[in-house]
Simulated scan of single mutants.
Amino acid sequence: MAGDILDNQGRGEAGWQWPSIHPEGRKFALITAAASLVTAFLAWETIAWPMAFLTLGVLAFFRDPERVVPQDDKYIVSPADGMVSLITQVEPPAELVGDDGSGTTGLPAGPVTRVSIFMSVFDVHINRAPIGGIVRRVVYMPGKFMNADLDKASEENERQHLLIERPDGVSIGFTQIAGLVARRIVPFVKPGDMIAVGQRVGLIRFGSRVDVYLPAGTSPRVVLGQTVIAGETVLADIGTQPLIEGVSQ
């Protein structure tokens, strides 16, 4: 069950179960399932079968499995399922820097490490909080729908910036970016919400990317090409700069 204690001392009860389907996806599944049934009733099999398979694809896309979230204040966990496609030094988005007029201090100016996670249509698209704390900003930016794997998608695509501040003042910013197929970013949180690390914060419909901006003095614990899991994979330890190397196979 969600919330059960699972650890390396044998506590908890492990078991496989079908992942739930997020409510955001149920309406799409109902539409495609209805179309499949109607076309089957009309004996339009060439349409009915593809619509039936599309229904299964929609259900798979909106699956919402439970996750076992690491509980350590030094960890920044992955906000998205997918592949680490870019690790680079950049200036954080202007929408997350400085005072936005609300009296809330954003990220400091200056280069930081950005870890980009590309989500294919086969990945889980529920995004989760990389740290626990107060949601300070949720800023939606309209834009284009270029391939989310491109570096310039961070500045030109439709996107939504989020800023979370921990009780000790450490802030993490991250950005949900729409891709070629994605046409809507759906937030689950708003400024002022108190959230836990690994908590669901939103989704991006039908393929996209999430950028995470690490604090100064923090290097990623992941490498290019690595597959990460939202709410489980540790992206970085705050304040540490290990050199992590991998060999592609």
Rank of each mutant, 00 (worst) to 15 (best):
R184I: 12
P130R: 05
V186R: 13
T55Q: 02
S219R: 15
P215L: 10
A94W: 01
G225R: 12
K27A: 14
L96H: 09
L96R: 10
V247I: 14
A153L: 07
T88F: 02
V38D: 03
T113A: 03
V84Y: 11
V201A: 03
V170P: 01
G225V: 11
A216V: 14
L86S: 10
D149H: 11
V189F: 05
R184H: 10
I117L: 09
E232M: 15
F188I: 01
I21M: 13
G82A: 09
D4M: 11
Q176K: 14
D4L: 04
V186D: 04
D237P: 00
I47V: 15
I134A: 12
F118T: 02
G57R: 03
L30F: 14
I117K: 06
I131W: 00
A43M: 10
V223L: 06
A29C: 10
R26P: 00
V124I: 15
E24R: 13
R136I: 00
D4I: 07
G10T: 06
R11S: 10
I87M: 13
D100Y: 06
D211E: 10
R67A: 11
S120R: 08
V58M: 06
V210H: 01
P93Y: 11
A230K: 12
P65D: 11
D193F: 05
L224C: 03
D149N: 15
S102C: 02
L96E: 09
L54D: 01
I185R: 04
D7A: 03
G231T: 12
P108G: 07
I164D: 02
N157Y: 06
P19R: 01
L203P: 08
G25K: 06
G179W: 08
N147Y: 03
G132D: 07
P242M: 08
Y140I: 00
Q241C: 07
A109M: 03
I5E: 05
L42G: 02
G173S: 09
V58A: 00
W44P: 00
P242G: 09
D4E: 14
A52M: 14
L86H: 15
R137C: 05
V223Q: 13
I5L: 13
W16T: 07
H161D: 12
V223D: 02
S120H: 10
I76Y: 09
L56M: 13
A52I: 03
L180Y: 02
F53M: 14
M83I: 15
P111E: 14
A34D: 04
A60K: 07
D7H: 05
G12I: 01
Y75M: 04
D149F: 04
V84R: 10
T39D: 03
H125E: 09
V58Q: 00
I177K: 03
A33F: 14
V139L: 04
